[in-house]
Design a protein around this nucleic acid. Structure first.
Lengths: 245, 245
DNA sequence: ACACTTAGATGCTCCATACATATATGTAGT
DNA sequence: ACTACATATATGTATGGAGCATCTAAGTGT
C-alpha cells in the first residue's frame, strides 16, 4: 500500500506534454421503477473508499470503443452490450495525480445482466453496488443508496453519471434504446415502466401503447406472460430490422 | 522541412503508454443556402496539402473547452464564439505519426465572423477556404469546393465534419442554435433559411413563422429591413432570457 | 357464478403543424 | 398618381398524434 503523496510524486515525474486517457463506463439498468448505475468502491489512492465508475486506461493500439468494451468485460463480466460514447471530461484537475482525460461511455443492460455484473467481480473489486439515481439538486447530481444515503463519488464521476442520464433521457424520444433495458420478450407494460423510470415521470398508458405499436419497433410473439393473477399481457420482441429503417 | 519518415521516427521514440490529445474544431456558418465549414491546407507532414480542420494539442494545464477556445482564437481570430464538444475520435491509426486522440468540437458563427476568420490568418496558415457541405453519399461525408470538386480531407476530418452536421441537424429541433448563425438583428426569413440550410430541406413558411413566434425565442425590435424592393420584414432579436427558461 | 384486476380496443378532444387564402406594405414602372 | 409586383403578415382549415375516458376481454381467487 502506498500513500497518495507517493502517487502524486511518481506521476508528476513522468508528466510532459502527453496525457493519460481513460475510459469510464456508466453501466445503467432499470429496476424498481428507477435507474441504477454500477459503481465500485475504490481500494486504492486516489479517492480511496469512494465510489467510482468502472474504467481503465486506453491502450496504445486500442480504439476508444474497444477500450470501453474491454472495461465492461474485465470489470463487469459483460460482452455484447449496447454501449455508446457519451462525452469527454478533461478538466485539468479532475484527477489529483496527473492530467487524465476521461472519455465517458454509457452502457445499457437488462436487470438480469446487471445483477450478473454486480455479482461477478467481487474478487477483483471490493464491492459493487446498485445506485438509484434520483435527479439533480442545485445543478449537482445526487446519488442515493438504499436509505437515501448520499454517496461519496470519486473524481467527477457524479457528473459523468448525470450526463449519461441526461443523454438517454433525451435519446429515448427518438432512438430505440428502451429495449436495451429489457429481456428478449417483454410486455408493453414493461416497456412503459422502463420509459417512465428513465424519464422520471408517468406516461399515458393508451397513448404509449398506440405510439409503440404504430412505430413498428415491436413485433408480437403470440405468447403471453404467465403466473399473473389477472389477464396476461402479450409478449413482444424488439423489431431490430424496423429500427434500422 | 522534414519528411514524413522523420516524423514517424521522432514520434515513435517518445511513445509509451501516454497519448497525445488534440482538439479539432468544426467552424460552421450558413451562406448561400448551405452549410460551410472552415478548413485549411496543411503545410506539413503528415497529410501535407490536404485540407484539415483547425486544431491543436491540448496543453497540460488547459481544459478541453479552453483548448477549443484557444484554437479558435489562434487559428481563426475569433473570440466569444458558441462552441460545444461534439465527439471524441480515437481510432489507433487515425494519425499516421503516433497515437493521437482528437476531441472534436463544433462552433457556430454568423457569416460576417466567418469571413473574418477566413481572411484573418493567411499569414500563419497557407490558405483557408469555404467548403459547402452537400450531404452524405454512401455513408461517407462528401465535401465540395466551388465546382463540386471533391476535397481531399486530412486524417478523419471528413468524419468529424459529418458528425458535426448530423449533431446540429438533430439539435436544431430542440435547442436554440439557429440564432448563432445570424447577426444580432434578423428577419424571420433569415432564420428560416438558416434552418433550411442546416436541415437540407424546405420548411413551410407559415408554420415556421407561427412556431418561432409562439416559442418566445424571438423579440420584435420594431425596426424593419431596408433597401429591399418589396414590403420590408420586421427585424427580430434572439430572446436569450426566454431560451434559458 | 361472481368479484377483481389488468390487458387491450375504441371514440373524443385538444393541440401543433401543413396547407391554403386573404390582406398589408414596400418598390418600380408608367 | 396609379398600377403591377413581390414579399410580409394574418387568418382559416385539414390532418395527425397524444391525452383522456369508456368499454370489452381474459385471466385468478372466492
Amino acid at each position: 500500500m502506498i500513500s497518495e503523496r507517493q502517487f502524486l510524486r511518481a506521476y508528476d515525474a513522468s508528466a510532459f506534454d502527453r496525457v493519460s486517457v481513460t475510459v469510464d463506463v456508466v453501466l445503467l439498468s432499470v429496476a424498481d421503477g428507477g435507474l441504477h448505475a454500477l459503481v465500485h468502491r475504490r481500494a486504492e489512492h486516489p479517492c480511496r473508499d469512494k465510489w467510482a465508475l468502472p474504467g481503465g486506461f486506453v491502450q496504445l493500439a486500442e480504439s476508444l470503443d474497444a477500450a470501453a468494451a474491454r472495461v465492461l468485460r474485465d470489470k463487469a463480466g459483460l460482452e455484447d452490450v449496447f454501449v455508446e460514447q457519451l462525452y469527454t471530461f478533461g478538466e485539468p484537475c479532475r484527477d489529483p495525480r496527473t492530467r487524465v482525460i476521461s472519455v465517458g461511455y454509457y452502457a445499457l443492460v437488462d436487470i438480469t445482466r446487471f445483477e450478473q455484473a454486480h455479482a461477478a467481480r467481487e474478487d477483483v473489486i471490493s464491492a459493487q453496488i446498485v445506485v438509484p439515481w434520483k435527479g439533480e439538486r442545485g445543478g449537482a447530481v445526487q446519488l442515493f443508496g438504499d436509505q437515501k444515503q448520499t454517496l461519496d463519488v470519486a473524481f467527477d464521476h457524479a457528473e459523468i453519471i448525470g450526463a449519461a442520464v441526461k443523454r438517454i433521457r433525451g435519446k429515448l424520444g427518438y432512438a430505440p434504446i428502451g429495449f436495451e433495458f429489457l429481456p428478449k420478450r417483454f410486455t408493453l407494460l414493461d416497456l412503459r415502466q422502463v420509459h417512465e423510470a428513465v424519464l422520471g415521470r408517468r406516461l399515458n398508458k393508451d397513448s404509449f401503447r398506440r405510439t409503440v405499436l404504430a412505430s413498428g419497433l415491436v413485433r408480437a410473439t403470440g405468447q403471453r406472460e404467465r403466473a399473473v393473477d389477472h389477464r396476461p399481457a402479450e409478449l413482444f420482441r424488439f423489431n431490430r430490422k424496423e429500427a434500422r429503417a
